[in-house]
Nucleic acid binder design. Structure first.
Lengths: 173, 173
DNA sequence: ATCTGCTTTCAGTAATTACTGAAAGTTCAT
DNA sequence: ATGAACTTTCAGTAATTACTGAAAGCAGAT
């Protein structure tokens, strides 16, 4: 039985590591992704000190990344009565995780990018040269695509899990 | 008329900068994204030296990132007859860009991550403890979601632009 | 007012990632 | 074989990003 414990912990570490790598590839800081993985697979909420110990990181690092994760809406602060310290628990439902990430990335990254595309498009609105027209056209296509994808994302992210599944079925069927 | 040139170049720089920022946020190296932006908005193919000059970067840097972009299928090498040197031209169709990025990210990042999820899932297959079962279940949900999303991506990416638009219309309609 | 237990900040440092530039490699023409 | 015109590599360096740990801040208990 304790053998099982050991194997579980090993497996969990494998997962934490891989989730960290994946996060890094997608522009999320490695530690943040690892903390997320840790909490996602923790049966109980964890304190800052527990996170520090599990990942062998400093208090400052743990603190910053925990608060960032709260900012992304991926974990929540839990206070136990009688205890002064904060505990953290992760959202475990994958669909909900997806929705929150989608929403935040849109807000933080897509919207500003769209702003630039629009500005570049309108700055070249009246141009007469072939180059100017081509550039304007290219900006228009990018803007259309990005804003379209963004709207799609919104739509999907605001659906209930069940509805999304149904829609997906149509797709494959 | 030359005033227009100046404004166009300024605007193009704005775009190159923003595309670089966006790339960085999505885990792509800034310079690579900037070169991509530059070539996407260039009426003609460009040589390594022209890219170096336009972005004020070294030969090594230009070379590495140009070749990486070729690896992603986002730009192609063009050789002019009589000329020995290589020129580079970007795919400009946004749908095609999307398809290629989707395909590459799947191959490079999603598939390996899925591999780990499956391995973690099967390593905890037979566990009897509550923690073991919960972990196994969580891996299963993640695997289902990731592989589902990946399949969806495949599907969309292998569609013709027109078909995708139709599908999207159903969606909004 | 002071202490205790915790959270937050941040200057300094470490680790990682990206870039430079020069040298080596390649290819083709003579 | 030699050289010209390019491409490729890579050791060294710079820039960026992430982390540490100690100090400061804060809130409730005494």
């Amino acid at each position: 039985m304790s053998e099982e414990r050991v194997k579980l912990e090993e497996t969990r570490e494998e997962f934490v590591t891989q989730w960290g790598i994946m996060g890094a590839q997608w522009g999320i800081n490695r530690t943040m992704a690892q903390i997320h993985a840790l909490l996602m697979t923790s049966p109980n909420v964890m304190s800052t000190d527990e996170v520090m110990e599990a990942l062998e990181i400093s208090r400052g690092n743990a603190h910053t990344n925990l608060k960032d994760l709260v900012g992304w809406g991926l974990i929540r602060i839990v206070t136990k009565k009688g205890e002064r310290k904060e505990f953290f628990g992760a959202e475990k439902d994958v669909w909900e995780i997806f929705r929150r990430v989608a929403r935040e990335r849109k807000r933080r990254e897509i919207d500003p990018a769209l702003e630039t595309l629009r500005s570049c498009k309108s700055a070249t609105e009246e141009m007469k040269s072939v180059e100017g027209k081509a550039f304007h056209e290219q900006m228009g296509q990018l803007e259309d695509f990005v804003s379209f994808a963004s709207k799609m994302g919104d739509r999907v992210a605001s659906m209930q899990h069940g509805k999304a599944i149904k829609l997906a079925m149509k797709f494959f069927g």
